Simulated assay, not measured.
Amino acid sequence: MIVPSSNTALEPATTQLIQNRPDINVHFTRIPVRAITLDGGGAAFDIDTMMSAARLLADAKVDCIAWNGTAGSWLGLEHDRQICAAITQETGIAATTSTLAILQACQDFGVSALACATPYTRDVVDAITQEYGRHGLDVVSHAEWELTDNTSFAEKTAGEIAELLLAASKDAPETRAAQAVALICTNVDGTTVLSEVEKNLGIPVIDSIAATLWWALELTGTDARVPGAGMLLQQGWLRHRAKTLVTELRNRTGCDRTTVRIDDAALGLHVDLCAAESCAPGVRSIQHDPSLDQRKLETVSWVEEHRKMLVQPAFTEPPYPPQALREVYGVSAQVLGPVEREGQLAAWFSAHSIAERPWTDEDLAAMTQAQRELSTLLNDN
């Protein structure tokens, strides 16, 4: 990990997160960063500086190099992508950044409306809002400490950090409620208050330190689970894979929306919200709509009873889907694919079509493959 020179939070926080993971070693080196301002005063975020640090880490034969700083959130994702490409081209080692990790977490959790908590000044927050907006993330509310000196960020107490996170989502409009809160700064350690704040808000908190660790581990193929450290480090490994499965299923079937719902109390997942979703352009998301008791739906009861794929080219006979699915979301045909674990209906995929349509053998084969792959994930873990 490449660390801002004045950062005193992320190294101890990262070390604490992996204290029960003897299979993981994290090594650090530093680059000059003393203040966070849009004019770049006191910070060296250029590629040459990053490359000098990356070369030192490459000597340790690490599996991934992460720029553990959030400057790409206002300098732009392209800035971070260029850094990663340069590091990998020269060293042959996978590379990522805190900002890329935050955006990946939002994608895997289906977040399009985000609350942002930062220690930064308002002009930096405005730049972050504009940059995230270019990548499909609407910053609907925010809270900030209006600080520039990087060392001062780490002086805040856990209570003050929790208050900042709660304040960030407080002013979100009812018509566009935040689906997650992002703590954007790796010198503010939110890892100790994640569970408390998430329980209070009922939505994920994407902490920059935790996100960087999570995505670096994912890039190396390492188990990224850290129990008790918030939803991302608890659920992220499964949501990332589930997102890949529903995206592949939608692409193979050419349908309008695919979802997967997973019941796993240990991970904090329940079927009234989708664990992952993929939508065709212009198709309305259903992922964050908790209005229906899924287990009581006629179609889900049918799947529960028969434990086989439910194929509906049209809704002309029972079991009928809920009225909201047809009238609010415009679905006219669907396939449901159940997944069992220890004899229980643990999850199911849905493939939705806005128009009535036949489901081909190729479509059903794609659903069967998705069921099989998720079954392996759930039963092996």
Rank of each mutant, 00 (worst) to 15 (best):
residue 307 R to L: 08
residue 247 T to P: 10
residue 353 S to C: 01
residue 262 I to S: 05
residue 291 S to Y: 04
residue 172 A to K: 01
residue 267 L to Y: 12
residue 103 L to P: 07
residue 86 A to I: 04
residue 277 E to Q: 03
residue 164 L to R: 02
residue 120 Y to Q: 14
residue 176 R to A: 15
residue 200 N to I: 11
residue 187 N to W: 02
residue 39 D to H: 11
residue 237 W to I: 12
residue 337 G to H: 04
residue 115 A to G: 14
residue 48 D to C: 04
residue 105 A to F: 06
residue 21 R to F: 06
residue 331 V to Y: 05
residue 237 W to H: 14
residue 79 H to T: 03
residue 105 A to Q: 07
residue 100 L to P: 04
residue 134 R to W: 11
residue 357 R to D: 06
residue 7 N to H: 04
residue 293 D to Y: 12
residue 204 P to N: 09
residue 2 I to E: 11
residue 345 L to G: 07
residue 139 V to A: 06
residue 63 D to C: 01
residue 36 I to V: 11
residue 142 H to S: 15
residue 323 Q to H: 14
residue 107 Q to F: 14
residue 61 K to L: 11
residue 201 L to E: 02
residue 160 E to A: 02
residue 212 T to W: 05
residue 373 E to H: 13
residue 309 M to G: 00
residue 370 A to F: 07
residue 149 D to R: 12
residue 285 S to L: 10
residue 181 V to H: 00
residue 92 G to V: 00
residue 155 E to R: 14
residue 134 R to V: 13
residue 289 D to M: 12
residue 307 R to W: 13
residue 275 A to N: 09
residue 85 A to T: 00
residue 174 E to Y: 12
residue 336 L to P: 02
residue 336 L to C: 02
residue 224 A to L: 01
residue 357 R to E: 06
residue 238 L to S: 01
residue 15 T to W: 06
residue 99 T to K: 06
residue 191 T to N: 07
residue 368 T to N: 12
residue 65 I to R: 00
residue 14 T to A: 14
residue 126 D to S: 14
residue 15 T to H: 09
residue 223 D to K: 02
residue 97 T to W: 03
residue 165 L to S: 01
residue 161 I to P: 02
residue 5 S to V: 01
residue 178 A to R: 08
residue 229 A to P: 08
residue 7 N to S: 10
residue 92 G to K: 06
residue 180 A to P: 02
residue 92 G to R: 05
residue 72 G to M: 07
residue 81 R to T: 05
residue 328 V to N: 13
residue 258 T to M: 08
residue 222 T to C: 15
residue 245 L to P: 01
residue 190 G to W: 08
residue 98 S to V: 00
residue 321 P to N: 02
residue 152 S to D: 15
residue 329 Y to C: 04
residue 331 V to L: 10
residue 200 N to K: 15
